[in-house]
Design a binder for these strands. Structure first.
Lengths: 153, 153
DNA sequence: CTGAATTAGTTTCAAATGTAACTATTATGT
DNA sequence: ACATAATAGTTACATTTGAAACTAATTCAG
């Protein structure tokens, strides 16, 4: 008895399951806009954030979409080169550089959003309306709890 | 009316939420064994698969834990250098190289498993027993459905 | 039996990512 | 006011990752 090693059944282990599910979904979604529009996941997320909340500084974007400032900086660099995002300088604080979509960027954004929502709808088709609410609620609580655990280990 | 551009509320968008949750959980877990044992996520997953199902070939490992063979090969390379994993050659099919944990690898495995299970238990503390079952069921169905969508696009 | 196709696994090269150091600007404390 | 610290963002370097090419062994078709 007692000191027998426990087995870890990876395929039932929650962190593993979440990771595999998220990756599958993320890759599927990526297929939608990587080919046709040539965007990376981070680039698309930046565009989505700007599409809704522009003007935002790079730091603001990072806060919104949980991405560190280096990743944002690089995504923005690529998007500006392609003329999808433009940047101004804040007259009052010249460190800050508010970002926004260009007309071209907005047009692309408006093409991608319906595709993304369509994919989400197809995914949700596996669940009833109530199950969707349940899933979202459980994810929210898990997320909040995981953050607590991380900060008070 | 009609052709108004829809907004994508990233923070309510399921693929995004799954991604952020999975990443937070995965990083928290990684903290448990990265420092003390010097393992990467992929290395630990390979060890977990071997801890349960050895002997497995690299391809078998990949199938079990949803990891492509290049990633498995690299993880195994690192683990063998550290004497945690050993490899034989199949006499009947010399392409196949069955893998297993060494005694040292098994000992480390048996130290990490309780830590991983403890973290999972702490995470699950956010949910009731019934909610855990519900979450797992919903994740299963979402995963199966997402795979269908991927294969019949 | 022999040549084409498959399968297992590794290596290579390019792209993505994380960490830390760096520049520039603004805020703060004395 | 002036040195110090804090903030915004970029750059540089090292590590990871992914895709494709490659080696080696086996299978299969004719």
């Amino acid at each position: 008895m007692s000191t027998e090693a426990q087995a870890l059944e990876l395929e039932k282990f929650l962190p593993y399951r979440l990771s595999v599910l998220a990756q599958l979904v993320s890759e599927s979604l990526h297929d939608l806009y990587a080919g046709p529009f040539g965007l990376s996941v981070t680039q698309w997320r930046v565009m989505a954030a700007l599409g809704r909340f522009a003007p935002l500084t790079a730091s603001d974007v990072g806060l919104r979409i949980v991405m560190d400032k280096v990743a944002v900086s690089r995504a923005v660099g690529g998007l500006m080169k392609r003329g999808l995002v433009e940047r101004a300088t804040d007259r009052e604080d010249r460190r800050r550089e508010p970002l926004g979509l260009t007309a071209k960027g907005r047009a692309m954004h408006d093409e991608i959003v319906p595709l993304a929502l369509k994919y989400e709808a197809e995914l949700y088709a596996a669940l009833s309306a109530e199950e969707r609410r349940t899933l979202n609620g459980l994810c929210d609580r898990l997320f909040a709890h995981a953050k607590l655990l991380r900060n008070h280990p």
